[in-house]
Nucleic acid binder design. Structure first.
Lengths: 215, 215
DNA sequence: CCGCCTGTGTAACCTTGGTCACATACACGC
DNA sequence: GCGTGTATGTGACCAAGGTTACACAGGCGG
């Protein structure tokens, strides 16, 4: 059942010594959560390492005023850098993790995670994803610190296909901004001929122009 | 000479198998740089893993307009998370590293670094510091995304002793802001009785008040 | 004493982005 | 067709912070 899906999504598990892998899977815990569930939050201790089977986790940094800045997403087959960091450093979470749809995952307790880390192949798996996410975070820092909203929005629109189905509110959430700003900017994009707007839809007319605007 | 200082600052080296450690040290490269030297920069490939002996590295994210946002510092005995990340992920640098004073370091080539990583004790050393820095970066994201400048300045002034010797320009650089803003805010702090100002000097009068302002 | 450099004070102005308060507009069930 | 909710358009206003352009003060070498 789950074990097959798990090993398909995380082939690294098959490269572990069978005894160790089986032990780990025996101690792991199946978790199912509906959309929008808060899996972890700031100041909480870290329970274990998640292998995502279905759905995904949106990791955000909550602001005092209730807004949230998206940090990254964890999809099936990936790993959560903040969880890794907390497990490695024995520290509490410093962000919030929310399921993005009905989500199932296998939670590896921390001591088993530590044990698996002794295996070079598992270590490499964790670190590779760690390094990738780190690059994402650097990118994010650059964005929030230096980029203007129009540049960030242009970047967001790119690389999602020619037509994009989302409400302005959803786009604003991705940027940690508000609906009105996105509406305004999209309108100006449309006036520049970069996009064509429709209800819950943005059609990319001039990818090159958007890329130029994104900088 | 260097070897002794190195092993004092990085006791983890003494916990490695002697043969491996000696091999690593043989292949490592001594580097001395004056203050303000750019040790690495965005888009550059990562040469190796630095052990800092003296001085330090200020790691910053450069903006298009020439300003720089400080990410963190690397002092003797510590490690550079971005370098680790780049080495682990075989990616290029995405930040800039600048010496903060006359700096000497020992640079471990990447293949030797990979080899050392196989040792649990070295791995733990890297990861522990990795996790710490990660928390710093999360803190930084929170600051630049959500905190107002007065809160950030108040936070910066705290925990540096009762009197602080720095120019407004230096404080502004720490915040990734500009001198005028710092002057303005410090003036308002002084009017509120939180600090007393002098040339190249800020005296903390009301730490509790500053802490409250920092939020 | 003079000139000069560095650090600081300060006012006017601008851009960005967020807030508020609406007005439409469109879909969908009835 | 008719309400009703959701999505969008829009303008006025505001706060934060950056930019420009100075004035001024103090120290220091000549």
């Amino acid at each position: 059942m789950n074990a097959n899906a798990l090993r398909n999504l995380y082939p690294v598990l098959d490269q572990l010594p069978a005894a160790l892998r089986d032990k780990a899977l025996r101690q792991a815990q199946d978790v199912a959560a509906p959309a929008g569930a808060v899996l972890f939050d700031e100041q909480q201790p870290c329970q274990g390492f998640p292998f995502i089977l279905e759905g995904g986790i949106r990791v955000v940094k909550p602001a005092a005023n209730g807004r949230e800045l998206p940090l990254y997403r964890v999809l099936p087959g990936e790993s959560c850098i903040i969880t890794s960091s907390c497990l490695l450093g024995h520290a509490d979470y410093n962000a919030r993790g929310i399921t993005e749809g009905p989500t199932t995952l296998v939670l590896l307790p921390r001591d088993v995670f530590d044990e698996l880390l002794a295996q070079p192949v598992f270590r490499d798996f964790v670190f590779r994803l760690f390094a990738e996410r780190m690059a994402d975070l650097m990118q994010l820092i650059e964005e929030v610190a230096f980029r203007k909203l129009d540049q960030r929005l242009a970047g967001l629109l790119l690389g999602k296909g020619k037509v994009l189905h989302a409400t302005h509110q959803q786009l604003a959430d991705e940027l940690g901004s508000v609906r009105e700003m996105v509406s305004r900017l999209l309108k100006s994009f449309a006036e520049q001929g970069l996009v064509r707007l429709g209800r819950e839809q943005v059609e990319i007319l001039d990818p090159a122009g958007l890329r130029r605007m994104a900088g």
